[in-house]
Write a protein that binds this DNA or RNA. Structure first.
Length: 127
RNA sequence: GCUACAAGCCAGGCUAUCGCUCGUUGUCAUCCUGAGUUUAUCGAAGGAAGCAACGGGAGGAAAGUCCGGACAGCACAGAGCAAUGCACCGGUGAAUAGCCGGCCUGUUGAAAGACAGAGAGAUAGUGCCACAGAAAAUUACCGCCUGAUGUAGCUUUUGCGGAUGGGGAAGCCCGCUUAUGGAGGUUUGCAAAUGGGCAAGCCCUCCUUCGCUAAAGCUACGGAGGGCAAGGUUGAAAACGUGGGGUAAGAGCCCACGGCUUAUGGCAGUAAUGCCAUUCGCGGGUAAACCUUGCAUGCUGAAAUGCCACGUAUAGUACCCGGUAAGGGCGGCUCGCCCGUGAUUGUUGCAAAACAAUCGGGGUACAGGGUAGGCAGAUUGAGCCCGGUGCGUAAGUGCCGGGACAGAUAAAUGAUAGGCCGCACAUGUAAAUGUGUUACAAAAUCCGGCUUAUGGCUUGUAGCUUUU
RNA sequence: GGUGCUUUGGCAGAACGGUUAUGCGCCGGGGUGAAAAUCCGGAGAUCAUGGUUCGAUUCCAUGAGGUACCA
């Protein structure tokens, strides 16, 4: 029952500055436009997620919040499969998205892109 | 109906599904602490995470960071300088460069009024004022007046200044004279012979004319020097304005009227200020040029600050320091003041102490190592809103009653879908249909202002247009 | 969160409050068989809006952009 709920609480978010620094310096990365993905396996069993949008792309805080909310929503609705796999393997993963497009995103394309990213992450966890 | 201005209000609402965060309550089989005793995979009670229910969850500007505070830390030994800010008056308020009222000035207007004002000082000093113009600030180009010396002309007076003459019987011929002409005399010559004559610039005298020299006077030109600032094609700006007197010419030099201004007094006003009287004056503009005057300001800023946890290197290099230390604080600078060194050994010495060495200590700079988690600050406060009421022109404020008030921290307050209300656009006579959809923008310790961005609604005022 | 500095043609970059220089680039012409270089000529700018001033790139205010710093 637990994994049918599409939650994204505090524990599922990437909040430590230290962890993020480590992710940027030592993590793997790939890009599915317009999103750049950073990820790194960890010791815990949780899947942690974070988003960032540059101030240079969007000067207004309202726009940045909008982008982050859309991406977060897409991740929340689709990440359960990956979480199950990790729980099965007893592994953890930190994932970080950076939005790189200058145009404001619409919901559906981002939803699809997030799906592709999750598939890729799934494959890589296998390998 | 449109436009402009002013004031006020709202900042979409509903349903479904899935979420985020805070609080309260409950639950809790997992974990932690663990009363109790029977020492047992016993467990009261509490807590953590999870779960459930209920409740709260961006703004009028949350923005810009332009002002002002609260609050916190450091300092509190003062003086001077510097720096920064402010600048009509009164009120308001915790405070301000905010707000309210008033005064003054300017613009506009017939006026009433409206709008604007960084609104101390240009007579403390320095600088600047392009082009044009005579000149851009106590000066002088033209000009007006006076005017030594000079030049020219005129008048008067004095003095000076013209031609040797020769030849021929004569007419005449030659020579000379750049002062004209006349009168008289004398002389010479000629002709004639009665008398009267004729001729002569170069014989004499006088007058006149002309020229020169000198003196005096007048006029004109020029003008050393002096006086004046009235007038002068400019310019953004021109030396208080108009009229009269005055003068060599002129001038606020004097007078009258008017304008501005200083001071004193009276009256009105809390005051700025206004009116009246007397009075010093009238030497441009610019201080959002430097500056001067007055007043105010200790510095820093929640990344402040306190506590807990974790971690590292009590290490390295160079230099400095023995009390008037190195260095640090007040503090941006100077003075001044304050803080800031111990032990052991040795030498000298009666001692106090001084000096030296060693060890430690302190400081500055460099290069490096570590941490960047949690709690408090921190979400209810000089507060805000509504109603009533008192005071006040108002800003505001007193009293009474009621109400609401987020708290994240890689940072929540949402996403998707569908209607509805409203709005905009398109089609349409209309009914309606279709499309789009709210603008500006997101708390980050808190509060009061200001400024800027912006959708819609209501009311009022003014103008325009249409219809009646 | 806080504090500075800065904005001049396409680019770089000067300018006492008094006509916005200069270089590279661009356009046109000349030149060449065609180009390059060179030569001649030309266009093109003070971030925006107000204010002070007779007059603002310059001084002041407000806003917009850029940039740097503070643990």
């Amino acid at each position: 029952m637990l994994h049918n709920k599409h939650t994204l609480g505090k524990k599922e978010r990437l909040k430590s500055r230290k962890a993020i620094d480590a992710l940027f310096s030592g993590g793997h990365r790939f890009t599915v436009s317009p999103i750049r993905v950073f990820y790194q396996p960890t010791k815990g069993t949780t899947l942690k997620f974070g988003v960032a949008v540059s101030t240079k792309l969007y000067k207004k805080a309202v726009d940045r919040n909008r982008v982050k909310r859309v991406i977060r929503e897409c991740w929340r609705l689709q990440k359960n499969q990956l979480q199950e796999k990790l729980t099965g393997k007893g592994a953890g993963l930190d994932v970080f998205f950076v939005y790189t497009d200058r145009e404001l995103p619409r919901y559906e394309p981002i939803f699809r892109t997030t799906g592709i990213i999750l598939e890729k992450l799934n494959e890589r966890m296998n390998g």
